[in-house]
Amino acid sequence: MAAMESTTGSETRLYVGIWIGLLAIVGVEVALTYAGLRAGVLLMALLTLAVVEAGIGVMFFMHLKYERRTLFWSLIPGLIFVLLLMNHLWRDAARMVSLRP
């Protein structure tokens, strides 16, 4: 555990705590999958948990929290905007189903 000694004790505790938290979220996701939820509800729950996991990963594991704020504001809002734009396709997916005989 030589490398662990090179992080401060509080950093190591933080990282291990986050790692346990992320594993716990995966457990919650699996439990929700078999909870008998409707597809839409399950999808929203799983997506929300995935976004929380990604947020924690980006901010703490990738250290974006400790970088200058200009880096965050230059990268993340643009990506979110692009991903939101992709939501335009859902109505067409519904149209595809209704076109079936």
């Binding site: 996701e29 999808l43 799983l46 995935a50 990604a54 990963g57 594991f61």
Partner: peptide, 14 residues
């Protein structure tokens, strides 16, 4: 790792 956090729920669990 973070990409997998989306692939696992969306492609496997769903």
């Amino acid at each position: 790792d973070i990409v997998w956090m989306f692939v696992f729920p969306l492609v496997y669990l769903m």
